[in-house]
Design a protein around this nucleic acid. Sequence first.
DNA 1: ACCTGTGAAATCGTTCACAGCA
DNA 2: TGCTGTGAACGATTTCACAGGT
Lengths: 211, 211
Amino acid sequence: MKTEKISELTTNRLSIYLRCLNELSAEGAKTISSGRLAKRFHLNSAQIRKDLACFGEFGVRGVGYYIADLKEQITKILGLDHKHRVAIIGAGRLGMALTDYYGFTQTNFEVAALFDADEEKIGSKVGKVKVFDLKNFERVIRKEDIDVAVIAVPAQFAQSVLETVAKSGIKAVMNFAPTPLRFADDIKVKTIDLTISLESLSYFLAKPQND
Amino acid sequence: MKTEKISELTTNRLSIYLRCLNELSAEGAKTISSGRLAKRFHLNSAQIRKDLACFGEFGVRGVGYYIADLKEQITKILGLDHKHRVAIIGAGRLGMALTDYYGFTQTNFEVAALFDADEEKIGSKVGKVKVFDLKNFERVIRKEDIDVAVIAVPAQFAQSVLETVAKSGIKAVMNFAPTPLRFADDIKVKTIDLTISLESLSYFLAKPQND
DNA sequence: ACCTGTGAAATCGTTCACAGCA
DNA sequence: TGCTGTGAACGATTTCACAGGT
């Protein structure tokens, strides 16, 4: 077991391993070795072992890993053993699409509130989720016990929204605005920048030789 | 000028530089040095120079880079000097949200068609974009001259949709389904996996000491 | 025999530091 | 003097290879 700092690449892979284990589990398998896991899902077996070894000795030499046990361990490491409550800021199309994004509920996340500054939208509902006035952000997130925020507003408002979010005490933010954000280092901001992804596809199409 | 293989990290940063240059340009600046660019946007100046040097010698010693010229060069490198036409597969909330996502139009991408397998949706419109039957994918993308596909269908259909897309000759795909996909290496698939991002936030909240 | 956990090696990416040009 | 372009140093990440446990 390593006690060094754990890289984000490692934790991202943990999510992937968890998915693989769910699939194997559904098939009724009881144990899996890093070698077979790697082969089946096109991963590297040494990397799987190293990643897992960061958090403990979960394997059994000569056997592999007990699937049910390992699932439970990874679920706990990723903090997926309890529900997270999510606020989405920006009740535009993207915010609304995310509100009933299946992937949220699938991994123990629940969208508890939408926020917008537009009078027209405040008070309306998306499915069962109410749209609140952004001005009341802090009050609502306390009442609703929210611990994760999603920023789905136009880029020019993102920094100011992030400051509202940070002031409320929320420590985990997912940002869809294609803009760099400044924030204190006790909070975690994960930016999903679709513009960069698109431009990267464009580069692939444009580059001289498709090697 | 390097002729080695260019990493995706480098091309992603090119997108960022382009954004920065647009901002500077809007302020009326004519030239910028890597040092001042780095300071202003919290980047590393050596990295900026290295990234740019992969594609040519765009700078002038003692002066820096001419902003208008550099913008043009990067735009060309990223293939953003001509429009890309996009098909979105899956006319659910996510597909619809992406259809009028501002970021697309902003960087020379245009959503030209939506596809779905649901009879109810086929023939309807989202804004000006028509929903076609997925069965007619190849015919429509040829007629509409589409070169980029976005997969916004549930995970269990993603692999089969990708195969339809690949067969049609499209080489650039953005995938929102949280599942690993198998594909030939002459096509580029960029997966935006919101589940992994969420779980990474969850890990941050769960881990023992928030260091 | 099979498999884990882990040092060591290899690869990849970033930052430093400076030669050389305007 | 100010700045680029780049080799060299450094740091991070991945992969190899094997000692040691079952």
